[in-house]
C-alpha cells in the first residue's frame, strides 16, 4: 500500500514537470508561445495544489494574507507599468525570487539546524548565498535599467580584488557554517547573507550599457539554481527540477547573448581593468568596448 502511494506521488511529480516541459516546448513557435506561457503557469498552480494536498497547511491566515498581497501587487504592477519599464520590472521580479529563496533556505536551515545532514547543509548554504547575490544583483540591475542608478559601469578602486576577497570570505563562512556548533551557525548564516548581498552589488555595479541583458539572463539562471538548492534542502523534487530547468535555460540564453554580441562572458564580468593601468577607471573609454556599444545602438535604432 505504502509503495503504491510513493509511486503515485512520484508519478504526479513527473506529471507536473511534464506539463512544464510542454509549456517551454511550445515556445518554439511564436504563435503557440502564449499558450506555452499559460501552460507553464498551470503547471505551477498544479504543483502548488499537489503540495497543499500532500502536506496540508498550518498557518492558513498568514499564507492566505501574504499570497493575496503578493500576487495582487504583482498582477497590478505588471498591468500598470509601461513597455519601457518592463526590463527593469523583470529584474525586480528576479530579485524578489532570489530574496524568497534565501529566506526559505534560512528558515529551513534554522529549523533543521541541530540534525543537519551534510548534503542538506551544503545545499542550504549555497541556496542562501546564491539567493542573496541574486537579490542584490537584480536590485542594482533594476536601478540601472530604470535610470535610478547611473547606467554606465562604475568601477571601484581594485575592483577585481574586492570581488575576489568578498568571494573568498563567503566561501570561508560557508565552510564555517557547516562545522561550527549549532549556536554559532546563525551568525555564520547572517554573515553569508550580508557578504552575498555585498557581492551582488560589487558584481553588477561594474556592468552597464549593452551588457545589461547578459547580466539579467545570468541572474535569472542563478535564481533557478537558488530554487534548485532550496528544493534540495526541503526535499522537494518539483522544486529541484523546475530550478534546474531555469538554471539550464538561463545559462544557455546567457551564452547565446554573449555570442550574438561577440563578447566573452568572462570579459563582461571581469572587464578590461587588468589590461589598463588601474588609475584610469573609465571603461567606456576603451575603443573596443565603445565600438561594441555603438553597434548595439545601431541595431536598436
Amino acid at each position: 500500500m505504502g509503495e503504491t502511494y510513493e509511486c503515485l506521488n512520484l508519478f504526479l511529480d513527473f506529471l507536473v514537470i511534464g506539463i512544464l516541459i510542454l509549456g517551454i516546448w511550445l515556445f518554439r513557435w511564436p504563435h503557440w508561445a502564449k499558450l506555452g506561457n499559460l501552460t507553464a503557469a498551470f503547471a505551477l498552480t498544479l504543483g502548488a495544489g499537489l503540495v497543499l494536498y500532500r502536506n496540508g497547511i498550518y498557518h492558513l491566515h498568514v499564507v492566505t494574507a501574504t499570497l493575496v498581497v503578493g500576487s495582487g501587487l504583482g498582477y497590478w504592477v505588471a498591468r500598470r507599468i509601461t513597455m519601457i519599464q518592463i526590463p527593469a520590472m523583470v529584474a525586480f521580479q528576479n530579485g524578489a525570487g532570489g530574496a524568497a529563496s534565501f529566506c526559505i533556505s534560512f528558515v529551513e536551515l534554522m529549523r533543521t539546524g541541530i540534525h543537519l545532514e551534510m548534503i542538506n547543509g551544503v545545499s542550504g548554504v549555497l541556496g542562501l548565498a546564491i539567493g542573496a547575490v541574486t537579490f542584490s544583483g537584480s536590485m542594482v540591475a533594476c536601478g540601472k535599467l530604470s535610470n535610478t542608478l547611473a547606467q554606465k559601469p562604475r568601477v571601484f578602486f581594485r575592483h577585481t580584488w574586492l570581488v575576489m576577497v568578498n568571494f573568498a570570505a563567503i566561501v570561508l563562512f560557508m565552510v564555517a557554517a557547516l562545522y561550527v556548533p549549532a549556536g554559532g551557525r546563525v551568525v555564520c548564516y547572517l554573515a553569508i547573507i550580508m557578504l552575498s548581498v555585498l557581492f551582488g552589488v560589487l558584481f553588477s555595479i561594474r556592468i552597464g550599457g549593452a551588457d545589461m541583458p547578459v547580466l539579467i539572463s545570468l541572474l535569472n539562471a542563478m535564481t533557478g539554481m537558488a530554487a534548485a538548492f532550496c528544493g534540495m534542502i526541503i526535499g522537494s523534487k518539483l522544486l529541484i527540477s523546475c530550478g534546474a530547468m531555469v538554471g539550464a535555460s538561463g545559462s544557455i540564453l546567457t551564452h547565446v547573448m554573449c555570442r550574438a554580441m561577440n563578447r566573452s562572458l568572462f570579459r563582461i564580468f571581469v572587464p578590461v581593468e587588468k589590461v589598463r593601468p588601474v588609475l584610469q577607471p573609465e571603461p567606456l573609454a576603451e575603443p573596443e568596448q565603445a565600438a561594441v556599444t555603438m553597434d548595439e545602438t545601431d541595431q536598436g535604432g
Binding site: 512544464l20 517551454i24 505551477l44 498557518h59 524578489a96 535569472n220 537558488a226
Partner: peptide, 20 residues
Amino acid sequence: LMSMTNAISAVTILGALILF
C-alpha cells in the same frame, strides 16, 4: 522566454508552502 523562466523560478513558492 527569459521572462517566463523568471516566472518559473518563483517555484520557490512551493518551498514556502512546505515551510508552512
